[in-house]
Design a protein around this nucleic acid. Sequence first.
DNA 1: CTGTTAGCGCTTTCAC
DNA 2: GTGAAAGCGCTAACAG
Lengths: 354, 354
Amino acid sequence: MNITIKEIAKRANVSIATVSRALNNLDNVRPETKDSILSIAEKLNYIPNVGARNLVMQKTNIIGFVLPEIQGEFYTEIIRGIDEYVYNAGYHMIVASSHSQRSIVESLVNFMKRSFVDGVILMAPSINERVKEIITGSTVPVVVISGKSEVDIVDTVSIDNFQGAYSIVNFLIKNYGHTKIAIIKGPSTNNDSLERYEGYAAALTDNKIKINENWVVEGDFTLRGGEIACSRLMTLLERPDAIFASNDMMALGCYKVINSLGYSVPKDIGVVGFDHILFSDVVLPRLTTVHVPKSELGQEAARLLLERLDGGRDKEPEHVKVSTGIIIGESCNNLNDYNHKPRYQPINQSINQL
Amino acid sequence: MNITIKEIAKRANVSIATVSRALNNLDNVRPETKDSILSIAEKLNYIPNVGARNLVMQKTNIIGFVLPEIQGEFYTEIIRGIDEYVYNAGYHMIVASSHSQRSIVESLVNFMKRSFVDGVILMAPSINERVKEIITGSTVPVVVISGKSEVDIVDTVSIDNFQGAYSIVNFLIKNYGHTKIAIIKGPSTNNDSLERYEGYAAALTDNKIKINENWVVEGDFTLRGGEIACSRLMTLLERPDAIFASNDMMALGCYKVINSLGYSVPKDIGVVGFDHILFSDVVLPRLTTVHVPKSELGQEAARLLLERLDGGRDKEPEHVKVSTGIIIGESCNNLNDYNHKPRYQPINQSINQL
DNA sequence: CTGTTAGCGCTTTCAC
DNA sequence: GTGAAAGCGCTAACAG
């Protein structure tokens, strides 16, 4: 049988209450008593029963993280961000991704079970009515990571998609002299996608550039989607000079298509992305893209949740936006520099540099 | 206050025992009574208290997954594999990756707390004495995912590294006519790394090819490590015709170096990898590599763990090896097809090609 | 300082 | 079929 405080109490000739106090390091225990208890516990290799403590404390020190699917480094980074943060506060995290057998709704409902988790972080590209309903009726605090702060009754964390998209497009225009910029949008149901488009549109408008509807195509955030969308752009009579792919995966899809058509990035057409995934630095030419602090996204969500858990249950919902930055690669040319300076160093030169 | 079986019992005019029976769908309850109870529970929106049930059942239906670091799709896929499998059995998973604040040992010890998790899946590239000790003394079942079945006292799941490495190297020799094959090993402390090297060595030996020590260099499984190792190989007086990188990240590092030197893959030198990460299909040329069924790795581990949990506590430890397959890309040439065309082009010639 | 006692909410004998 | 009662192992008043 597993050893309990009862057993320790017997051996130490004290009551279980005293054992509990000693173990929890409360100060109203005589030092000698405490030492004795602690040493006995140590000797017996005592391990507290978490479940029993949970029951009486009405707290599990576990939070749930619900996400669409565990795939791609994006989610991985967020998971890490959350985990690192909550660990320091003595919490653990249960990950529930939706998959063939389980929907987001199901995961949520499951987590809301009393004494299962103390709080939930929900990551969802779009939030339907049913989910909103569940969040509203939740007994435990919920923090939403989403493209848009569409749920204002709970804390939210979102990427500053607008700013990110605006910045990079504005950069292409102002610094690189581009005017013919196409966009490959993400899925229309996705909030991040919408905001990125708005940033794109605003940057053009602010620079007095008309939006060419032929240069606005939709993708689905996948590599394949990027390929298809890019093919469409490449077969237009009037081609853009640069493509703003709403995420890096699609940008890589563009690379593939452009290369397979015998063109080259950025010589023939520029490509920029959004997300700054690992491989945007690995590909040649390195992708110019918008950096999203993924891990920070998770950390902020965790911070908000733990703050709620720490007594701040009825303060106003907080809405945090994490900001982005531009990563400048070589996937888009500076048209202003274009005075016949070769952009690619002759190979013999780079060899000399070794 | 939250509603409990006590409340339901009161309203249904029965005892809490009967409520419990009805809720758990035991058969020794009169149908009418059961219906009445169920409808009341429904109406009251009753949610069972997981913690209380855990306490009396001595079971949490949570398993722990301990891994070195949450990073890269490799781990992500395994997490998904485990999650999908255990979900169907009514379990949840707590992920604990080691990071700056937490070691593997710490995670393990933490999970071993009674009533915290019902079992643990441990993924570790190498297993030290301390960890072995903890596993041995564990009160809950442990399944180890590791490169080698070095822990034979518990169930293990491992990649068939030897077979994978052997296959791809043998393929290069037998099918592509290669003889000058270098290897970039992984870290020497990593079991997967060692086994892959052994597969490489065996394939050469079986084909009566001597191992050239100059062509055996060590990497660290990172992109950067691959670059450094590849640079060393490329500066040798006698260069290999192909490089077997012990994982795909390092293979991509090779791509970078080879390209930056003005050479091309596979024309000047072939590169093959191991893992079959997402990006091995994205890069150009597509990487020839060894496919590792990552999600299956997680699923097998989950299966073994749940089998233990399901009463099979004292059956013999099982050791599962998941097998690999070769993915043929375009990153390595078939020399048999290569009728006397020079493999290394003079540098000026490759410049002309631009 | 320490012991007694009353639960936390649930499952499970053991009677009836 | 159903109820009474005994815990699961722990914390937290409340006394002393």
